[in-house]
Amino acid sequence: MSETLAPTPGQTIGPFFHDALPYDGGAFLVPAGTAGAVRLHGTVYDGSGAPVPDALLEVRQADPSGAAPRAEGSLRRDGRFTGWGRAATDASGRYAFTTVEPAGVDGGAAFFSVVVLARGLLDRLFTRAYLPGQSDAFLAGLPAAEAQTLRVVREDDGSLRFDVHLQGDRETVFLRYPRHER
């Protein structure tokens, strides 16, 4: 590995991103009504249990065969599956994507990689949303209560719910990757 350059620090996304980052179709990784389409949804909470109405989530995912999409076209979707989407939370702190369920890549567990941004949050955070029944060494290595925060819940209507707790008793496990300070 060559010499590492000092990274540019992150800063909060602030309150004024809604005219810039969310876009029409951003939360629809597949069109509604697509065979196998599923809603991935949830609420973002702060440390008092109050919903966070000015958060932004991005998901990155494989397709149902476990392939990592490298197709362009996320901003002006034309039917290609790009495996990336973006959704702001609403006034109730809720977000929702319409997508398909990923398979694991290269035999790994199936999860959505999730980036969380919000006013009041000074840097972006990474987490994983594991599909029901999936596990791997990382998840198995966490205390049970922490692992639970990374598990997607299948609702009675078949949708997938993944709540994010920025702080508190049910605080979501957030990730740090090697070579990164955060």
Partner: peptide
């Protein structure tokens, strides 16, 4: 009230995390 108080968990990136979306 909007920052995690627990340390971030070390994770080795894998699969989809190693591939940025393409534009």
């Amino acid at each position: 009230l909007r920052h995690p108080t627990k340390d971030l968990r070390h994770a080795d990136p894998e699969g989809i995390e190693l591939v940025a979306p393409v534009f």
